[in-house]
Design a protein around this nucleic acid. Sequence first.
DNA 1: TTTCAAAGTTAGACACGGCTAACATGTCAA
DNA 2: TTGACATGTTAGCCGTGTCTAACTTTGAAA
Lengths: 226, 226
Amino acid sequence: MNRTPSASAEDYLKALYALSTAPDASERVNTKAIADRLSLSQPSVTSMLKSLQKQGLVSYASYRGAALTADGRTEALRVIRKHRLIEVFLHRMLGYSWSEVHDEAERLEHAVSDTLIDRMDAALGFPDFDPHGDPIPGRDLTMRSHDAVCLLEIEPPCEVTIKRVMSQDSAVLDWLGQRGIRPGAPIRLVHLSPFDGPAEIAIDDRAIHLGRGLASMLRVRPVDAD
Amino acid sequence: MNRTPSASAEDYLKALYALSTAPDASERVNTKAIADRLSLSQPSVTSMLKSLQKQGLVSYASYRGAALTADGRTEALRVIRKHRLIEVFLHRMLGYSWSEVHDEAERLEHAVSDTLIDRMDAALGFPDFDPHGDPIPGRDLTMRSHDAVCLLEIEPPCEVTIKRVMSQDSAVLDWLGQRGIRPGAPIRLVHLSPFDGPAEIAIDDRAIHLGRGLASMLRVRPVDAD
DNA sequence: TTTCAAAGTTAGACACGGCTAACATGTCAA
DNA sequence: TTGACATGTTAGCCGTGTCTAACTTTGAAA
């Protein structure tokens, strides 16, 4: 009863991990939230949760949502580690842009062995972050914590460094990338318009106005924090 | 009705290709031969052949065996191309030995996109052969012909170069590799014992005696043929 | 020409992972 | 406290790809 999770099961575990570690998330995760995230019907989710519980990866109670067990969390982190290392590998070794890596990694993460991923890790020099700035769990499958904060929580004006861009949408990533907005880039938060207005930032002395949606995807650290 | 073949379907197409291009193969391939090669039951094969026929990849008639259609052949070659390029990639870029590459490639071949494989191909400098000396179909999906002959067809004594080692068994490959028997290695066929006896070869002036089984896996070219 | 073993197919089952339709439960607002 | 509506589950279906058991066909030897 403890076989390797199927590709589908891995996707559920990843979704569960992401939803339960989201900024404002509760302990237990909704059936609906999982269904929405994976674009599946709710009954499909119910049935997979029961199956994952039988495998000891999820704790689940009818009408009460689900949570990862310690084992489930480990499996989720194993997949996330694979996903992010593959992203770095595609980016650095094969010239993929950061907007292209996600979809390819989404398929490969279910096919690469633990051995292969460790060799990729070594070939890359044991990177800590993927091309989007997402932290890569180490071989011990613990998630590194990330001390960056949301751009919208900064008091303008302020010089910050972009640490992480929390989007997987390739159109968004292309648009940001063309403007130099990527992890490591130094930017200046100039102004935050009230009433959910845009954020004005400056990068290389060029002004860019970002809607709140986009701005909230940027995780930054004040320059003097180092 | 012309979707991308499933991972299973790809395995059947590869098997069909291998069996129908084997040295002494007939036009049509047995159900049993496929079942044996894939370690599946015969009824499973019958049912998949019907499905592949419906997809236009295989021509099949009850009790008459099966053959690839032009489309099926193309799909088979696409998978073989992926498999062999992945093998080269693992070997050259990630330090895999030639006895390790097959199993990993067997899983990855179903997950890599055409785009990724083309980038790997370019990163490797468009190799013509995989680590076992098997020819890699080009982007146009045509199989390069291979002018090497079986070691057992050579008249000893004769200096030859090993061109290809037709085994996927890692124990066999390790044993051969430890003795320097790999594509590119120059060897001397010293003697062929009669009555299905061993082949005596010399490599770096060291004598090695190979059973017919092993010897028949070696494809070579006489040194003066270049 | 007959027969019989090997090869092939059909029938029917199962696990997996989806789905829709219908029913059950929870929760918030009145 | 009680609806009403959002959320969740159950029931039952489907397609894929596998299996075993039972039956059919083929083809080669007698």
